[in-house]
Write a protein that binds this DNA or RNA. Structure first.
Length: 238
DNA sequence: TCATTAAATTGTT
DNA sequence: AACAATTTAATGA
């Protein structure tokens, strides 16, 4: 659980197939794109592996190619507080990269996946150069803001079962586009950190939703059967 | 490939 | 928070 990714050592250039998955590349001019591609690297990550940790200097702007990652911060007691899940197509670190600070959060892989990194210098160069790139980064920031607000809304909800359901849905929502993996590998302990409940209460909530047929609990993870039921939890009294 | 053991995770109290 | 039961991962014959 404590291995940390070293992009420098394990990275390689991207295949053209992987490059096609990076949407913002299409927003660049050929010249800009060439320079961006030159400074892009990818690395395989194993479940539990950290991509970046709080306090480390920013060297890359990261993007998820495949897999599922979670963004969390270390609280003062050393507990982990999860903010949000990051699905394929999501890029992060722009906030800290902009200010050239150290990372203020951890990014950890929930399952094995592929992570891409654009060197910060290139990131800044693109910000100075490309209008389309700026627009993309702005959209990312806005999206992140929305996620934080949603996270706060979930925090306010009183019913623990509902909180678990909505948190799961939030983690899944962006991921569950047609045909995508419906198995979420996350322990009940991690989920407990995610929603801010005790592990046994999460266990109880999972049993509840399992009985409702919305999920299927498995060892070391769970399967989402009815995302809509999770999303709409708490809306209509049940 | 199978049996044994350790570690991780889950289900309960 | 602690415990037992279950599942997975690792090891070595």
């Amino acid at each position: 659980m404590n291995t940390s990714l070293s992009l420098r050592q394990r990275s390689r250039a991207l295949t053209s197939d992987e490059l096609h998955q990076i949407r913002w590349l299409t927003l660049l001019t050929p010249h800009e794109r060439r320079r961006a591609v030159e400074n892009l690297r990818v690395a395989e990550v194993n479940p539990g592996e950290f991509v970046c940790r709080t306090g480390k200097p920013v060297t890359y702007w990261f993007g998820v190619i495949t897999g599922l990652f979670k963004m969390s911060a270390d609280s003062f007691e050393g507990l982990n507080v999860t903010f949000t899940g990051i699905p394929p197509g999501g890029w992060f670190g722009e906030g800290t990269a902009l200010k050239r600070e150290a990372y203020r959060y951890n990014i950890q892989a929930l399952r094995e996946g592929l992570i891409a990194g654009l060197h910060v210098e290139t990131f800044h160069w693109l910000l100075d150069q490309s209008l389309g790139f700026n627009r993309f980064v702005l959209k990312q920031l806005n999206e992140r803001l929305g996620q934080f607000i949603a996270a706060r809304e979930i925090d306010r909800m009183s019913n623990p079962n509902v909180r678990v359901a909505r948190s799961l849905a939030a983690l899944f929502n962006p991921v569950l586009y047609p045909g995508l993996e419906s198995v979420l590998r996350i322990t009940q302990q991690e989920l407990a950190y995610l929603v801010g409940l005790s592990r046994q209460r999460v266990n109880e909530a999972l049993a509840y939703w399992s009985a409702q047929g919305a999920i299927q609990v498995e060892y070391g993870g769970l399967r989402v059967l009815d995302l809509q039921a999770l999303q709409q939890a708490g809306l209509n009294p049940n």
